[in-house]
Structure formats: C-alpha cells, structure tokens
Design a binder for these strands. Structure first.
Lengths: 165, 165
DNA sequence: TGAAGATTGTTGCAGGTGAAATCAATTGAC
DNA sequence: GTCAATTGATTTCACCTGCAACAATCTTCA
C-alpha cells in the first residue's frame, strides 16, 4: 500500500483528477475572470493591477519591493510601472540616498482607480469563499499555505533525485 | 456586517490574502516545479505533457477532443501535437469518415514516456496531498470543484452588472 | 582613493500565447 | 447537384514573458 506500482499501465493518471492540473485550471479561470473585469473597467492588466494593489496598501515603495511583495519578476514590474506611468496612475520620485532606485506612489487618479477597484475585487474574492462551507473555508487557508510550501520542496527534491541519484 | 463598506480607503486589500492572487502563486509554483521536471527528464513542456497524459488515458482522440478534455486552446493543442510529432511521441491517422480531423495516438516511444512519467507525476501529486491533514484532504476536492464553478458564474455576473447595469 | 563586484532597473531578444484570419472538408438548404 | 454556412485544424499577427545583457549607481576593501 505504501509503495506505488511502477508499471506505467497499472497506474491510472486521470488529468481531471491530477492536482497540479486542477490548480492550474482553477487559477486560470479565476484570473481570466478578473482580468476581463479589470480590463473592461479600467484598461489595466493583471501585473498592473498587482502594482496598484501593492501601492494602495503600502503607499510608497521601490520597484524591487513591489516585486518581492507581489512575487513578480523585475522585468514584469518594470513594464507594469512604465505602463501605469503612461496612464498617469503611478508617479516616480527619486530616492536621493540611492539614485539607482525610485520611490513609486499612486497619483490621485491612481488612488481613485484603486478605491473603485478594491470593493469589487474584494467582493469577488468573498463571493468565491462564500461558496464554500464554513468548514471548507477554515481549511482553505492552511491548504493554500501547505501546498505552496510543499511544492517548493518537492521540486528541488525530485530534480536532485533524478539528476544525481 | 453583511454589506461591505464602499469607501475605498476603509476596505483593506492585502494582496497576500487575496484569494485570486494566492491561487495564482500556488498554481505557478506547482506548474514551474513540474515543468522543470518534465523538461529535464523528457524535453517536453506542459501543454505537451497534457496531450501525452490525455492520449495515455484515452489512446485515440482528435485534437478537438484533446482540447476539450485538457481545457486547452485549440492552437495550443495544435502546436503541442506538432511538437510531439517531431519528437516521434505522437502519430496521426486520418479519419476516413471526416478528413478535416485526424485521430491521434501515442507512438511506442510516446507510450514509454507516458509510462515513465506517470509514476513520478502521481508521486508528486500524492506528496502534495500528503502534506495536508486528513480533514484538509477531505475538503480539498470540494473546494476545487466549488471555486472553479463559482468563478465561472461570477465572471459573467460581474461583467453583466458593470457593463449593462 | 579607486577598481572590482554587487545591486537596481531597463531593454533586446527569443519563445509562447490567444484572437482573428485562413484553409480544407463537410453539412445543409434549396 | 450546387452554393452558402459550418466545422476542425493551422497559420498569422500582435502581445506578453523571462533570460541575458546592459547602464547606472552604490559598496567594499585593499
């Protein structure tokens, strides 16, 4: 019972029950729903929305910190910020103590977009959660944490075993 | 308590607790872990793996059916199949009754890749689930189903309200 | 001081993606 | 039977992405 059968044919793999696949489909569905919404209402894409949300929360940050907080690649942040500057939603202020970086803030127009977008985004998120039973809601938090953490560990582990072992 | 406060500033939105964001980070983490694994072991990408998995399960399908089953855009399927043909993992057989489509199957080499890949993929999936408590595992299935279903509904709902209402 | 190395952010490039156009084959209406 | 509409699959195009190279600016340490 503990060891899995190594014969390929005897181990059914059903894509529709395969967790990584299901997580992808779910995330994609949710993302696309929200992306269509952001786009149709404010003409911004997801990376831009993440920057706006981060600056809405922290008011003043460097691009590096935005990337760390929203887990976005630095080039993604750079391009999202550039696009938001063009739309006059974000402004840049030099950091006199370190001229490599700038402080970024929402403009008043940016704050307005944030204030309008936030209630709907939260409503969407809450509606998702509300479709779960109280018990499931309670599990959700831990499930997300655990799976994210575990997948990091497994990736390294599997690669090492197969490549070196 | 039931109605959310509509004033933007008074509704905190923390990206790190925002469900759509967290689902994305999780799916991305899991995907990248697996993608690195598929790639390093067999030189195939995720869309290709999905095609292989689907054909491993159903043996003989058209491109359209593969797309429906794996929820992939038809162009994605088309390109994944083309790539798998080049690698001699998939072969194409004309459907004499409808020459627009072809039946696709794994070659013997493709079956071998499937047989080798499946145990590890399942082990990865099982290890993810095993990091959860029995109770959380029990919730997981329903949570995924519910959230996927609900996000479909919400998308339409929100767009209709905002665009037309 | 100043030269090597690190860090922040931007850009060129190559690869992947979906929408729309297109091609090939089939079906339906007359 | 024939032509328009439909369907399955591919290709074109424009866009987004991450890697790698780069520029600008600090930091380190001899």
């Amino acid at each position: 019972m503990n060891r899995q059968d190594q014969k390929g044919g005897s181990v059914p793999l059903e894509l529709e029950n395969f967790l990584p696949y299901r997580l992808n489909v779910l995330a994609e569905t949710v993302s696309q729903s929200l992306a269509r919404f952001y786009e149709s209402r404010f003409g911004i894409a997801i990376p831009e929305w993440r920057v706006v949300a981060t600056l809405g929360q922290y008011a003043r940050m460097t691009a590096k910190d935005i990337g760390a907080h929203s887990r976005m690649h630095k080039t993604k942040v750079s391009r999202a910020v550039a696009s938001l500057e063009n739309k006059n939603l974000v402004k840049r202020q030099p950091n006199i103590e370190d001229m490599r970086e700038s402080f970024l803030e929402l403009t008043s127009k940016g704050k307005k977009v944030y204030a309008e977008l936030t209630p709907d985004a939260l409503a969407f998120s809450r509606a998702l959660v509300a479709s779960l039973s109280p018990e499931e809601q309670k599990s959700l938090e831990r499930i997300l944490e655990r799976l994210t953490e575990t997948s990091f560990q497994l990736a390294d582990q599997m690669l090492q075993e197969k490549e070196k072992g």
